[in-house]
Every structure is written in structure tokens, then in C-alpha cells.
Write a protein that binds this DNA or RNA. Structure first.
Length: 1044
RNA sequence: GGGCCAGUAGCUUAGCUAGGUUGAGCGUUCGGCUGAUAACCGGGAGGUCCUCGGUUCAAAUCCGAGCUGGCCCA
């Protein structure tokens, strides 16, 4: 293998990435990588299908990038990873978008337009979005099987959902019944808990008096939904709380009110009563069973009938009652979940005089035909007129809205199809424990909490674009559930070819089947499934099960899923629900739960706030790989990520260091014809620095693998990038630089080549999951395989690991830093050698380290010698004059004394100082002494000791220093002349001060060698002449290029 | 109103499981290097560890209350 291309350009993702993408296409790199691992043990990764109603945003970009990094890594580790992406393509959100597009306002517009036409529009909309999203994800460099995504609209997929529903049906877990559900009055359908968004709204806040039947007094209730009062059937109390009977007076009239004791003051103030006194207190249980008169009984005739039913318009005890407001809760089983449940427990009827469009039905009497929210006013007026209103105001609170059309939802009791997950709740909770979550608290706190509180799942929607509920009902009311297309074909009445049938509405509506019970023709119920049921079945439906059993048998359940924390109520939950109801098993083994992408201020990104940053913007500004590395550099286990332009840019700079580290040795390798296959680590004599960086490489490989094992992607990335910047670029490359321009057959140079090659070739594999484009581009010059992404993970080789050496090098680097710092204090550049460095330490480790690494240390700090001592005994004690004592004694001479004494060595001061020709001795209290380094020595401490650098000059050092100064100027000029490394020159020097040249002359050989000059002459036929300032002295340098 | 998570330098964060001198990157500033050079490297400044209380010889870390933000629920 040869190092071929010369890399001269800078790291520019905008150049590099399209280039690499082009190469991938051309070379079928993705297919090659998959092929390389096709025979490995399989690993079923399951992609959570994004919804095809919009474009990729930063959150989905993060999600897919994380998945991509994990898939690439797992492949490297020897797994045949399933990487089929999926798309969630049915459902209300798409219907709403299409309705908007067509200018529709309600369901009758759709019916008028024709269901078939509408379905076609939805299909097209979803497909168009799918294509756009495919492109978006591809642009992030995500390698998944984009040519063959699973689609929830395919026949095979829909069949998978039917099959699962039938399983639940057969196990008795499907029920139809009245339940209170969330109804979107605009979409005219039930919507799932997961489809509700909460926003702040202003609602009426009313206190209403319900007169007791058996005495002169009223129960006081509070509500924010006056429109539910026409459906009130009972009042709930907390049986353990204390309640009070209050005598209240206003304008001379007196009345009796019942409220919770805690609320008396607030309620009476709200009702603007003049005065009150509590007559009696008792437990809530004392109120249970008391009857009251419905305040709107005259407006709602049906209430009169209901009043005659057993138990209606009485007080009941309920857990959900809190003693805020009044402690008495108006309850309408037709309009509240809790109200409904307590009503059921007490065998109360359900009264819900509201249609699916949110308009009162005839049963609502005077209110019939009015939209409920608009009826609030009429209801409150009627209550006021009847004398029932105690107080009226508004209340701001969070209220549920339809997540797609933003209409406030209403709770109504309607007939719906349910999967009764509450019947298998114990199993659900058991199965949770079989899955492993990252982070674990997501499972044990968050998810468990959700599952424990889960209600039966309403899976039916009164809509069009969804998987039809596969239940057919005959005239007798028997239910026939169809689980597969074959079954449908068998049972279908008349001439039906199921193979050619689109399973969507309206086609499937036209198929009649033979009832399983009585054999009579049955008709399909018109509902479609809640779209969450679609994705819930992904683990088998995406594999084509049940029509194709092979993949299912081999792969199911999924080994791994990766989604954001909002999926606790979404996909994590729905999959568990369907998995357990259909297959009695949790359908995934491992979960990685990441966070959301927030804006730079930590707020969520939203259209209305206008703080959305699109992935495309970030790519345009900084490139895909920097964005990917940024997204993967934060905690990936549940924490949200704050977006930051600065951070992406910083990532780009870090990748640039990686790029330069790679770019640096290439020209030399190429020039020398270095062949990594021939010159391997076994063939070369490595130096200490080589051994060290190779050891570090093994350490990083094992750390990286350890982090990835736990899906701590951010930590793995950091370990790798820290290694490449801190260890390789900042240290190793600096150390080996001189070796790069040694003679052609230099063994140490070859060792450096072989070492750097190993470091780069293996690091690039580790970089591949994070920055796939950059890694690919780098690899092109490092190996022969089509793509870096087909390679195996570089396993750490313990034989190359030397922990002692790594520790010693840490010490060396600490001491080196201290020495550099001391030089800076002494204002002595690194170019000038120093005579001596002394390190004082009382730690054996430090002594051993510097002893073992002395040559390297001397080279690094450019010192002639190193001494390691326990105690540095060259400190001098110097005087600090104490003016408090000197002042009074010497009066106006005090300042002279101070100056004469300050910083003088102890002996000198003790011998007496000379002031104006007179020798003066000082008392002990006039001087204190402190330790100071001798002149020309600077000291800097480090963790483990102190470094003393002696920067005193002699001719030898000055000769070397000046020689290096001159060399550097000549190099600069060579560069200006754009000379190649091999080209020879002749130079001339002329200086104001001859001393420079005389000293430098001692190092003529060195100068000739370093500058590739054939000679130094007094005068040359210069191609370039320049004046330089060398340590304050003007030097004229002439360079003549010699033609060969 | 409830559950869960987070709050550390101007910004992004590590440290928190197992208490013992808060560490890094970016930015800023001063400097070095000059055969990776519109690159690379070093030093400095910069912190009430969200607030208040508790436990402890010792709290960023453990406990309690609160504030702010996020997700989920009512």
C-alpha cells in the first residue's frame, strides 16, 4: 500500500463532505460496510418511525445521528445490525394538514369531497414528506436502509396491526363501551392522551349553590366548565375532611351554606357576604347520601327524569376530592374521567348530552344546538337568574388542546373501542423489569409511574386516514375480528379479491364478511385505529409478520431502541402495551432515552417563539461532522441539550486539529515511499515517545469500548478527541517533528512513521461513528478497504500497554509545563538552550519518571542538564526591610536604609550596610529574610515538586542561541522563496554587531545542516535579501538559490 | 397541583453513585513557536458550585424546603 495523495488543503467540511458522499455512492460504500458484517450475529435495532407531517428538526437530527453512531459502532464490534428506518404515515395530524391544504373546515367537507379522494391526498402528502425526510436524514450522513424503509401504510404492515389487535381480541382484551374520552370538537373524533397539548387558558370560575332537598341550605360547588352543569348527576366529597354548615348574611337575608371548613373564609369572601358564623362542623361522610335539587332542572327536562333514578343528585365520597375551592365537587359522569369512574362504582347512569362536534344534543333541553363552550354564558346567566350563583370570575389554568388543530378538547362519554391494558397491568409492570434502560431512572421512576397510572387505551378514531378497525358486526350485534388478509379472503362475502384490495377506507368498508357466530353478513365498524397503534406494532409489523415469519423468528424481540424522553407516554408505552396484549411480552430489550434540543437560552424551540434552528442552517454554517460531534458531545441519557453556535464552531476547530495531525506526516511518508504493510511496528525500533503514544492508544481503545458498551457516546467521543488533541497533536507530533526530516533510512524516522500510522489508522476507526465523512477521507490514505465503516473495531493490545510509562510521561509533561512557565518568567525563549534545570521533589515517582525519561525531558525543555534533588539548596536568603522599625530609628535616612537593604543577601546585611559612607548595623527587628532563587534562576512549582531553570548565559549557549535565531530567519526566507525541502542554497550574514556572527560561526555545521545550505559566504548573489531584528541587533541575511 | 430530570467561570460542561483544596474546552488577555503555518502551543484573569436550612470534623456531592428551566401527567 502506498501513501498517495498529497493532502494540502485545510479541513473544510463543505468541500470534504459532498466529496465523500460522492465517493460513497460511487463505491457502494454503505452496501460494502453491511456486506462486511453480513455473517456476524444479528442485532435487531428498531428505528422509531418519525411522523411524516413535517421536516427534520434538530431533535430528529440528534435522534438519527445517535442511532447512526450506535449502529456504526455495533457493526464495528461484529454485529449484523438491522438498520431499516421507518415512517409513521397515518393519522389525524396528516388529515389536518390535508384539510388545511384543501381549505376544509369539518368532516362534512371531507364527505362531500369523497373519502377516496381524501385518502389519496393523504397518501400523497405522506409519501412526499417521506421522500423529503429521507433526503434530510441522508444529508446528516446517517447510514440506514433508505431505499427500503418500513411504512405503516403498506399492506404487510397494516396486517401486522390487525393481527396484533386480533390477538388482543381473542384474549378478551378488546372492549367496546362508553368511556369519557378526550374529544376534539373540530376534528370530531376522540383523541389519545398522547395527542393532547397543554396551554394556559382563561376559563370562567363559578361558585354555585345546589339547594339541599331536606333542609334549607345549599352545597357550594366550584367549576371552570359551566357547560357541564346541565349534565351534573352527583356531588363528591372527601369523607375524611372536615366540613362546615355556615350561616351567612347579606343585605339582611340569611342562608345556610355547606363547604369544607378550610374553605369557609375564601368562599364567603368570594360571595361578598356581610357576615357569617359556622354553625356546625362534621366529617364529609356525614354528607354522603344527602339529596339536592339540580339547579337547571327546568331548563333540561331530561334532568327531571334522571332525578327519579336511584341515587342521582346525591352526595358521594370520592378519592379525587381536594379541599381547595369548596371541597364539594360537581360531578358529571358524562364529562369527566373521575366523575365517570365514581359514577360507575355507584351504578349511576351516564348522561352526556353532547355530540362529537361539541354541540349539545336535544337531550340538553334549552341548550340544544349550542356549541358547549359558547353555552357557558347562557348557563351562568340561568344560574344567576335562578339565584344559584354565589360568585363568578375567571381562572387561568392549563387546559388540554388538540395537538394538531389547537382546539380546546372537551370530555364526553362516547362509545369507543378499548384495549383493556388495565386488565394486564401486573404483566406490564413485570415486563418492564425485563428491559434494560439507559438511564435506569427512566425505567424505574418515569416509565413505571406512567404505566402504573395508565388507563384503558381507546384505540378507535372516527376518522379516515388510518388502519381500519378490523371488526365486523352483524345485525345480531355479533363481533367478528379479522387478523389477516387470508382470513378476510376466507370470510369475505361475494366476489372480493383481497390481494388487490387497498386495506384503507373506503375500499375495505365495502367488504362484508360472514359473521363468525351466526354466519350472517356483517359490516365493518367505521372507525380507524388511533395512529399510535400503528407504531406500537412496529417490532413485528416492520418485519412483515405475520405474512413473513422468517425474519420474525430470527429477530424478534428488538434488541435496542433509541428515542427521546417524550416517548415515555408514546412509543415506549404503546409498544409495551401492544407487545403484552398481543404476545404477552415486552417487544424490546434495551432502551436508550435521550433528551430534547433546546435553544441557546434553554427554552424549547417553537414556531411561535421563533427560536427554531434547523439542522440545515447548522450544516450550512459549519458542516455535518461538526454538527454531529456537537450533538453527540452532550449527555445522551435523558438530559436536554442546549444548542450553541459557539460549541459547533469549537467542534469544527477540534476536528481541524485532528485533520492537521493526520495531514502533517503524509508528505514525508510519501516522499520516503513509506509502506505501512512493509514497515510495521514489528519491524522498527521504537523510542520512548513512540511506546508511550502506542500505550495511550490502547488505553483509549479500551476506555472508548467501555463507554460505548453503556451507550455513553459523549464520553467515548471525549476520550478519543482528548487523546488526539492532547496526546497526539499537542505532544507526540511535537516530539517527532524533527525525526520527520532525518535522512531517508533513519530507523527512528521509520519508527515514527509506523507509530503514527498505527495511531491514525486505529483512531480513524474510532472517529468513524461520530464524524463519518472526515474519518472516511482520512482513511483513504491509510488503508485499502473500500470504506472505513466496513472495518472492525481496533481492539486494545495489552502487550503494547505500559501504565508505568503513561504515568511517568504525565510527570514529565507536568514538569515540562512548569519549566516552560519558568522560562516565560525569565523571558527566555525555548529557542535558547538553558544551562541547567534542577527539579526538587520528595516523591519517588517523580524521581523515577524524570530519571527514566531524562533524554526526552532535556529535549523537550531544551536544557543542557537535569538534576533531580530532594532539596534545592541554592536558595539565598534576602532581606525585607521592616519600615515600622527602621523609620523611627533612622528618621530621614530611613528610605536610604531601605533601599540599601532590600533584596540583599543575609550575610551582606548582617555585616552592615553602607549609608553615605558610614557603615550601619541593623537590629534584628528591622529586617526579615525570605528565600529567593539565585539570579538567573526561576522556579515554578508543579504537582510533585518544583522546577528551577537556570537561564544564565555563556558563550556556548549564546552561540547556539544565535545560530538558531539565524537558522530560523533563513527558514523563513526559504519559505518566502517557496523552496522545496531538497533545494540547496548559499547564505550570507552581515550584522551591526560582529559578536553575533562570531558566536554563530562556532555552529556553522549546524546552520548548514538545518538550512540545507552549501556554504556561508561574505557576499552572495542573493535571490532574496532581508533585514532582521535578532535580539535587538540588526542582521542582514542574503539567500542565493543554487541551481542543481 | 403531582411524578421525573437538570441548575457548577461570560458560554458549553466534568466532578455527584461511594463527602476530603471545583477540573476542562470555547471566549478573553498576555506570550511562545514558525519544515501542520489563514496552522500549532504555553501562561494569566475569570467560580456566593441556583437559594435557604439540616446532617457531619468536613457538603458542589447526602437530607429537607424553595426558585428557575425541561419532559410527562392531573
Amino acid at each position: 500500500m502506498d501513501i498517495e495523495d498529497e493532502i494540502t488543503g485545510r479541513y473544510d467540511p463543505h468541500d470534504l463532505e459532498p466529496d465523500v458522499k460522492g465517493y460513497w455512492d460511487e463505491a457502494d460504500a454503505y452496501e460494502t460496510a453491511k456486506e462486511a458484517h453480513a455473517d456476524d450475529p444479528n442485532l435487531y435495532f428498531l428505528d422509531g418511525p418519525p411522523y411524516t407531517s413535517g421536516q427534520m428538526h434538530l431533535g430528529t437530527a440528534w435522534n438519527k445521528t445517535l442511532k447512526d453512531a450506535v449502529i456504526r459502532y455495533l457493526r464495528m464490534r461484529g454485529h449484523d445490525v438491522t438498520d431499516q428506518p421507518g415512517y409513521d404515515m397515518h393519522g389525524l395530524p396528516i388529515e389536518v394538514k390535508v384539510e388545511e391544504k384543501l381549505g376544509f373546515e369539518n368532516k362534512s367537507d371531507i364527505e362531500e369531497y369523497g373519502v377516496e379522494n381524501f385518502i389519496d391526498e393523504c397518501k400523497e402528502f405522506a409519501n412526499d414528506n417521506l421522500d423529503a425526510m429521507n433526503d434530510d436524514f441522508r444529508s446528516m450522513g446517517v447510514w440506514m436502509d433508505w431505499d427500503d424503509p418500513y411504512k405503516t401504510v403498506s399492506k404487510e404492515y397494516m396486517e401486522g396491526a390487525w393481527w396484533a389487535f386480533k390477538r388482543a381480541f381473542d384474549r378478551g382484551l378488546v372492549e367496546r363501551g362508553k368511556r369519557v374520552i378526550n374529544q376534539c370538537p373540530r376534528c370530531e373524533t376522540a383523541i389519545a392522551d398522547a395527542e393532547i397539548e397543554y396551554d394556559e387558558i382563561d376559563s370562567p370560575s363559578i361558585y354555585v349553590k345546589f339547594p339541599l332537598e331536606d333542609e334549607d341550605g345549599s352545597l357550594v360547588i366550584w367549576t371552570t366548565t359551566p357547560w357541564t352543569i346541565p349534565a351534573n348527576l352527583y356531588v363528591a366529597v372527601d369523607e375524611d375532611a372536615e366540613y362546615a354548615k355556615v350561616r351567612a348574611t347579606k343585605d339582611g337575608d340569611e342562608e345556610f351554606l355547606y363547604v369544607a371548613s378550610e374553605c369557609v373564609e375564601d368562599v364567603l369572601r368570594a360571595g361578598r357576604y356581610d357576615d357569617y358564623d359556622v354553625r356546625e362542623t362534621f366529617d364529609g361522610s356525614a354528607l354522603v347520601g344527602r339529596g339536592y335539587e339540580h339547579p337547571l332542572v327546568d331548563r333540561v327536562p331530561r334532568q327531571k327524569e334522571l332525578d327519579n333514578e336511584e341515587g342521582v343528585h346525591e352526595v358521594y365520597a370520592a378519592d379525587f376530592v381536594e379541599t381547595d375551592r369548596t371541597g364539594l365537587v360537581h360531578s358529571a359522569p358524562g364529562h369527566g374521567v373521575d366523575d365517570f369512574e365514581v359514577g360507575q362504582e355507584n351504578d349511576l347512569p351516564v348522561f352526556s348530552p353532547v355530540g362529537e362536534d361539541g354541540v349539545y344534543t336535544d337531550e340538553a333541553g334549552d341548550y340544544a344546538g349550542k356549541f358547549v363552550r359558547d353555552a357557558n354564558e347562557g348557563v351562568t346567566d340561568d344560574l344567576t337568574d335562578g339565584g344559584y350563583m354565589l360568585a363568578e370570575g375567571t381562572h387561568e389554568h392549563r387546559y388540554g388542546h388538540c395537538w394538531r388543530c389547537d382546539t380546546p378538547i372537551v370530555f364526553v362519554a362516547t362509545d369507543q373501542w378499548f384495549i383493556t391494558v388495565t386488565d394486564v397491568k401486573d404483566r406490564l409492570l413485570e415486563e418492564i423489569d425485563k428491559s434494560e434502560w439507559h438511564p435506569q431512572w427512566a425505567r424505574d421512576s418515569r416509565f413505571r409511574d406512567w404505566v402504573e397510572n395508565a388507563r384503558d387505551w381507546n384505540v378507535s378514531r372516527q376518522r379516515y386516514w388510518g388502519i381500519p378497525v378490523p371488526i365486523w358486526i352483524c345485525d345480531e350485534g355479533h363481533r367478528t375480528c379479522i387478523g389477516t388478509r387470508d382470513e378476510l379472503q376466507e370470510r369475505a362475502v361475494g366476489d372480493v379479491n383481497v390481494e388487490e384490495l387497498d386495506l384503507h377506507r373506503p375500499d375495505v368498508d365495502e367488504v362484508h364478511v360472514e359473521c363468525a357466530d351466526c354466519g350472517e353478513p356483517a359490516e365493518r365498524v367505521v372507525d380507524v385505529f388511533d395512529v399510535w397503534l400503528d407504531s406500537a406494532t412496529a417490532s413485528w409489523a416492520s418485519l412483515g409478520y405475520p405474512s413473513d415469519e422468517e425474519a420474525f423468528d430470527e429477530l424478534w424481540p428488538a434488541d435496542l431502541i433509541i428515542e427521546a424522553h417524550d416517548q415515555t407516554r408514546g412509543w415506549f408505552w404503546t409498544q409495551l402495551g401492544m407487545g403484552v396484549t398481543a404476545l404477552d411480552e415486552i417487544p424490546y430489550k434495551e432502551v436508550v432515552m435521550h433528551g430534547h434540543a433546546l435553544d441557546e437560552d434553554g427554552r424549547k424551540m417553537s414556531k411561535s417563539v421563533g427560536n427554531i434552528v434547523t439542522p440545515q442552517e447548522a450544516i450550512d454554517r459549519h458542516g455535518v461532522d461538526p454538527l454531529r460531534c456537537f450533538l453527540l458531545s452532550h449527555d445522551q441519557h435523558g438530559d436536554d441539550m442546549r444548542f450553541s453556535w459557539d460549541e459547533i464552531e469549537a467542534k469544527k476547530r477540534t476536528l481541524n486539529v485532528v485533520w492537521n495531525t493526520y495531514r502533517f506526516p503524509l508528505p514525508y511518508m510519501r516522499l520516503d515511499g513509506f509502506d505501512p504493510d512493509e514497515t510495521t511496528l514489528e519491524d522498527v525500533e521504537t523510542t520512548t515517545a513512540d511506546d508511550w503514544v502506542l500505550s495511550r492508544l490502547q488505553t483509549v481503545e479500551s476506555e472508548y469500548a467501555g463507554y460505548m458498551e453503556e451507550y455513553e457516546i459523549d464520553k467515548a467521543q471525549k476520550a478519543l478527541l482528548d487523546f488526539l488533541t492532547e496526546d497526539v497533536s499537542r505532544f507526540y507530533v511535537q516530539v517527532v517533528r524533527p525525526r520527520m526530516w532525518e535522512a531517508e533510512d533513519s530507523p527512528t524516522k521509520n519508527a515514527a512513521y509506523a507509530t503514527l500510522y498505527a495511531v491514525l489508522e486505529q483512531s480513524v476507526r474510532m472517529l468513524a461513528p461520530f464524524a463519518p465523512h472526515l474519518a472516511e477521507r482520512m482513511y483513504e490514505n491509510l488503508g485499502d478497504v473500500t470504506t472505513v465503516h466496513a472495518l472492525d473495531f481496533p481492539e486494545a493490545d495489552d502487550a503494547l500497554r505500559d501504565e508505568t510509562l503513561e504515568k511517568r510521561m504525565d510527570v514529565l509533561r507536568e514538569a515540562e509545563e512548569a519549566a516552560a512557565n519558568a522560562r516565560q518568567q525569565a523571558e527566555r525563549k525555548l529557542r535558547w538552550p538553558v544551562r541547567r534545570i534542577v527539579v526538587s521533589t520528595d516523591e519517588d515517582d517523580v524521581r523515577d519518571a524524570l530519571g527514566a525519561l531524562e533524554p526526552l525531558f532535556l529535549d523537550r525543555v531544551n536544557s543542557k542538564s537535569l538534576e533531580v534533588v530532594e532539596e534545592y539548596d541554592e536558595l539565598v536568603e534576602v532581606a525585607e526591610p521592616q519600615m515600622g522599625a527602621i523609620g523611627p530609628e533612622f528618621g530621614e535616612d530611613a528610605e536610604k536604609v531601605m533601599k540599601a537593604v532590600r533584596d540583599e543577601p543575609r550575610e551582606k546585611v548582617e555585616d552592615g550596610v553602607e549609608i553615605d559612607g558610614e557603615t550601619v548595623t541593623l537590629d534584628e527587628d528591622m529586617v526579615e529574610y525570605t528565600d529567593k532563587t539565585p539570579e538567573d534562576v526561576e522556579a515554578v512549582g508543579f504537582d510533585g515538586g518544583t522546577v528551577y531553570v537556570d537561564v544564565s548565559l555563556d558563550d556556548e549557549i549564546r552561540a547556539e542561541g544565535y545560530a538558531r535565531e539565524l537558522v530560523r530567519r533563513v527558514q523563513e526566507m526559504r519559505k518566502e522563496l517557496d523552496l522545496d525541502v531538497e533545494e540547496r542554497i548559499r547564505v550570507s550574514f552581515d550584522a551591526e554587531d560582529d559578536e553575533i556572527l562570531e558566536l554563530a560561526e562556532r555552529r556553522t555545521d549546524y546552520i548548514l545542516e538545518e538550512t540545507r545550505a552549501d556554504g556561508i559566504a561574505d557576499e552572495v548573489d542573493a535571490d532574496l535579501t532581508e533585514d532582521w531584528d535578532v535580539e535587538g541587533i540588526r542582521v542582514t541575511v542574503g539567500v542565493e538559490v543554487l541551481t542543481v
